[in-house]
Design a protein around this nucleic acid. Structure first.
Length: 599
RNA sequence: GCCCCUGUAGUUCAAUGGAUAGAACUACGGUUUCCUAAACCGCCAAUCCGGGUUCGAUUCCCGGCGGGGGUACCA
């Protein structure tokens, strides 16, 4: 960055002196020089041809001459190809840059201060009637990664989760459990609590559909049958009892939710995600109603004849939106308003980020307007971090059709596969304990899963094929982890041999083009972290880590570190290796991917 | 119908408006006396179609076509 700044400023001065025009330093377009040309940094000169009124080649020549004259310690020499001015940077600059990268443990990160804005990130937000699936996994990994990225960009971050713990869906599970459960518990069955509840949800649906089918066979039309089926009526009665605070229903609800939470906690732990503050819908939905009444009193909303409450957003180019049903019960929007109220009471939020799938884009557009009207200062600029769906080869995941990829199954499969993979390797580590092997399999298996999901642009839908297991070779987490482990091995051996990297690198050390290019890429890390924060998109970090490691790997076969005779070169290579391992560790760390010291 | 997102090798993914659009997987062929072969190298292969803006468009704008999502008492 430092080098780019120096060049940018010099170009600004040059354009001023040569052509008498003022340009902004940020507008200067610099890029890495293509390997087929001599140079390290390339200035795109097309923007200046209008000012110079000369051919691109001549313009480049003039600017190049100016740079060599004015900043000789930075720009050693140059050449011009078409409209591209290729600059050769003085080697000492690169050494200085490498030294700087190595001197900072958290290179590229900005530390939050007391004055930093407080960003709250909501993610995960599960329903308590079924276990987590692959879609939730994407949500959780993105939420966690984004929280890390925001923090690395100098924000104070509060991670939060809103648990949808009430509603008709939970009543369905409860009812099924009462009818067919025979008192089954997680302990008695050996099932994880969330899976147990999920099974009863499925059981409800199965019996319910049978009932509907019977009614239809008797001549009732399908819509009516869906309303009239005894099971659904019973579930509704249970929901009413719940709302009335019926002790028995509430006790059962509490018990079964506890089972689910215990199950979720296991999954969260395996995924390596967590929260600073958890909200429950059962606590927030009444707050939402209150807030809506308040808005009604202030004239933001209106009540229809049937008693339902609406927001008219036609002026904003949207539709009218229901806020309270005619029977007075709350809807999704109401609950989100209530949750916002509690959150604002609990924290001085400057910015709110909701990690929620893109199927709810419209919902958040509306929520933003409503919160703004209701006086939440961050409402207008709330961020809906809208990520794409995970699709299966035959379409979307649908729990009713049994086409869901269960999170727990997927996690254990990945870890088992990683274990299998290392067992198959010819050169597997010998002096390894069982516990260590297990831990490595966990890190690698989870690394493969997390990277697979996080490398994809969050906004886009992505495809997961359950038939093909997630790869461990190529553009994958394990590939990066493996390189990291090898570098660590080199560093351990260097230390054992008493080879030390001095604080200041030898300024006269020679650098190859590839080494310079690697330093440039290391330096890019800071910009990538910033970009991830600005775009709310962690995927660029994943792809960056891959590129960096791939480049290092190519080196690895070209040069030796420990066997290099020239001590200056050896020290530089050691420093490079150390920098790569550090940047990769920090980069993957932002994504929630761990690195093994050996594998 | 209306609104939003999206379209890149056989497949899964990249590419601040910049030079010859990159990887990976798959197929085939090489490379271990050498810091961990979960590696490296080689080879085949793509911007949905038509306009526009620009010195320059996968990228921005308009129009088609294809895919996904949303659309007022589900969450």
């Amino acid at each position: 960055m430092e080098i780019a700044n120096k060049i940018s400023n010099a170009v600004v001065a040059g354009v001023k002196e040569l052509y008498g025009q003022d340009i902004a330093p940020e507008s200067v377009q610099l890029q890495e020089t293509r390997p087929e040309f001599e140079g390290n940094v390339t200035l795109v000169v097309f923007p200046y041809v209008k000012m110079s009124r000369k051919r691109p080649e001549d313009t480049g020549q003039e600017i190049g001459e100016y740079l060599v004259k004015q900043v000789p310690d930075v720009v050693a020499r140059f050449n011009v190809v078409k409209g591209f001015l290729n600059l050769v940077i003085a080697p000492a600059q690169w050494i200085g840059l490498l030294e700087e990268i190595n001197s900072q443990e958290r290179f590229g990160f900005t530390k939050p201060t007391e004055e930093s804005p407080l960003v709250m990130i909501e993610y995960s937000s599960p329903n308590t009637n079924k276990p987590l699936h692959l879609g939730h996994v994407r949500n959780n990994l993105l939420g966690w990664a984004l929280a890390n990225v925001m923090e690395a960009n100098g924000n104070k971050v509060v991670k939060t989760n809103i648990v949808n713990d009430r509603g008709i869906h939970i009543c369905k599970s409860m009812l099924a459990w009462l009818k067919w459960g025979n008192g089954e518990t997680p302990e008695s069955s050996g099932k994880k609590g969330d899976h147990l509840i999920g099974d009863y949800y499925v059981a409800f649906d199965k019996h319910y559909r049978e009932e509907v089918k019977e009614l239809v066979a008797k001549g009732m039309d399908e819509e009516q049958a869906k309303q009239e089926a005894p099971l659904i009526k019973e579930a509704h009665e249970m929901l009413v009892k719940w709302e009335q605070g019926d002790p028995e229903v509430r006790a059962l609800w509490r018990k079964m939710n506890e089972w689910v939470y215990a199950g979720f906690d296991e999954t969260y732990k395996a995924l390596g995600v967590g929260f600073d503050k958890i909200y429950y819908e059962s606590d927030t939905y009444l707050e939402g109603k209150e807030k809506v009444e308040e808005g009604l009193a202030k004239g933001f909303f209106y009540r229809r004849e049937d008693g339902s409450v609406w927001a008219d957003l036609t002026k904003e180019g949207l539709d009218e939106k229901l806020l309270l049903r005619s029977d007075g019960t709350s809807v999704y929007m109401t609950q989100d308003i209530g949750t916002a109220k509690l959150r604002f009471q609990d924290f001085p939020i400057d910015k709110m980020i909701y990690v929620v799938g893109n199927e709810q884009n419209y919902h958040f557009q509306v929520l933003s307007i409503l919160l703004d009207k209701l006086g939440f200062k961050w409402g207008k600029d709330l961020v809906h971090f809208s990520y794409g769906m995970v699709e299966l080869p035959n379409g979307k995941m649908k729990s009713r059709e049994g086409t869901v990829v269960d999170a727990d199954d997927l996690i254990s499969t990945m870890i088992d596969d990683a274990r299998q993979m290392s067992a198959d390797k010819v050169n597997k580590l010998e002096d390894i304990t069982e516990a260590e092997a297990k831990e490595i399999a966990r890190i690698v298996g989870m690394g493969a899963l997390k990277y697979f999901i996080l490398k994809v642009d969050a906004r886009k839908n992505m495809l997961f094929n359950p038939e093909e297991s997630i790869d461990f070779n190529g553009n994958t987490g394990p590939f990066i982890q493996y390189t990291y482990a090898r570098i660590r091995s080199i560093l351990r051996k260097a230390e054992a041999q008493g080879i030390q990297r001095p604080e200041h690198l030898p300024t006269n050390a020679e650098l190859s083009d590839k080494e310079i290019s690697l330093i440039q890429h290391l330096n890019d890390f800071a910009a990538v972290v910033r970009q991830a924060g600005n775009d709310y998109n962690p995927s660029c970090i994943a792809n960056y880590c891959y590129e960096l490691v791939k480049e290092y790997n190519q080196f690895y076969h070209d040069f030796s570190v420990l066997k290099e005779e020239d001590s200056n070169k050896q020290i530089v290579r050691l420093a490079l290796s150390e920098a790569v391992s550090k940047v990769v560790r920090n980069g993957l760390g932002l994504l929630g991917i761990e690195v093994p010291e050996r594998m």
